[in-house]
Design a protein around this nucleic acid. Structure first.
Lengths: 191, 191
DNA sequence: GTCATTTATTGACGATCGTCAATCATTTTT
DNA sequence: AAAAATGATTGACGATCGTCAATAAATGAC
């Protein structure tokens, strides 16, 4: 089950047999249903995740309206880095869109991992780096692309999302009303 | 000159006398004029900066139009983290708005620093963390706030910017045309 | 100080988007 | 299978924004 995480780590830095065993024995795997909040606005994050199976969205709530910033899929770290490391209240929600299988790394476990295997600092760095690059990427597409271009971009990167995620969530990600996305799709059909 | 950087570091983790001396002796300070690119799109970043004095903007070029994503001011790290660490081409520009005084940390110097003083890994982590949090913050304001609210937000955080930065760059940051920012300011006067 | 260049403002117009409402389609529940 | 709930589409309308153009203000060069 935890193999997905081990493979991911191995791609970036070699894991010793002991480290692999440690991961297998100590990292809990959690299954959660759909529409569950892994983290809510105002909460302090005490764990981060490696998404083994499923789909998660990150969204902000503004005037009782939900604005989706990102979709996570299999093989990605899911975390609220700032809230986790600085122990400050999160400003966003992390919510499952589908039933998910997650590797859960709590603050305590992370401390223990670092104490026993300093190499795991690489893991922390990896998760942080991934989050930074995700954010830079989201921001770049937000700034440089029109809604229609962002839609094409999203589908080019994660084509399955169009099947897995309701359209109004995609619209929320594009920053437009569901009706507008419907019209964008209409325009695209005519090409 | 380098004191600003030393103070900044000291706020986050204590520096030994040796470390302070190392910084003072080895970190070059560079002065650049206004409107100079510290990094251009497509280039691979070989250094990052601590901004001692001046103002820098990060922008993307889209269809020969410049879209400003952020303004850096005194006491902040300025870097293109992804390009710097992964040695990949940058997607954006870093350009001085005013004449600037910069502490310059090259890849080679960073390696040397880490070899002599492992504590400086904290510095790298700090710079990375700062960049991550900056990006999260920009994205959050982009997603959750209207242009007018983003304008108020920017002025609340860095009131001097309105004096230091031409208005069309602020407009570019807000994602609206200069005419629209002019009208936003007009509306705000009436309150 | 004057001239030239750059930046900011204002008005008019058209395009795009959000909202509201109605309809249609799809999925879920019972 | 029928009913209910949810999601997607389409049309109409108004508000907002971008563009273009003209003017005004501010800045910089000489």
């Amino acid at each position: 089950m935890i193999d997905a995480l081990i493979n991911y780590c191995n791609k970036h830095f070699p894991l010793s047999r002991e480290e692999r065993d440690f991961l297998k024995q100590h990292i809990p795997v959690r299954r959660v249903g759909k529409q569950k909040n892994l983290l809510s606005e105002g909460e302090v994050s005490t764990e981060f995740f490696f998404l083994i199976e499923g789909c998660i969205r990150l969204f902000y709530e503004v005037d009782s309206e939900e604005k989706t910033a990102f979709f996570y899929t299999e093989g990605e770290f899911v975390s609220s880095y700032e809230s986790y490391t600085r122990q400050t209240p999160a400003r966003h929600f992390l919510q499952t869109i589908e039933a998910c299988t997650l590797a859960v790394i709590s603050v305590e476990l992370a401390d223990q991992m670092l104490a026993e295997f300093p190499t795991f600092a690489h893991l922390a760095r990896l998760a942080m780096e991934e989050e930074l690059i995700i954010y830079q990427d989201i921001l770049a597409t937000f700034i440089t692309l029109s809604p229609e271009q962002r839609y094409r971009n999203l589908l080019a990167r994660k084509p399955e999302l169009a099947q897995r995620v309701p359209q109004y969530l995609l619209a929320s990600y594009l920053g437009v009303a569901p009706e507008t996305l419907s019209r964008i799709r209409n325009r695209m059909r005519e090409d």
